[in-house]
Amino acid sequence: MVNIVLVSHADVGAALVRAAEMIAGPAEGVYAVSLLPEDSPESFGEKLDGVLAHIEGQETLILIDLFGGTPYNVAARQVLKETVECVTGVNLPMVLELLMSRDDATASELAASIATAGKESVRNLGPLLGR
């Protein structure tokens, strides 16, 4: 099963995991690393390394909150590893999709599918409902 690591400003990542678990049930192999106001890029990097050390060499999908910013700057390098994929712009539908489909898929397959799921989840309701 592919590991999931969320990296974010403040506790967005941890909150997304809690929210997804409310819907999909308790999940294993899911980690969240928060960039706090007192963190430097270096201390955030150490926190991320600490989590990744547990799952070294395993298939891992890193979900990054923003395309740009410290979590992105620090985490993007991990994509150089053969077993790691990184996707930016994480939202709740993406995390949910992952929790429900990661049993027999590779990190690379999941990365492609949730990038699409994430985009399709964004809708402007006014025009859609004819208002």
Binding site: P37, E38, D39, S40, P41, E42, S43
Partner: peptide, 14 residues
């Protein structure tokens, strides 16, 4: 923004 680290003290916000 300059992160806190050993040897640094907070001077304003973060």
């Amino acid at each position: 923004g300059i992160g806190n680290a050993p040897g640094r003290k907070n001077i304003f916000k973060n």
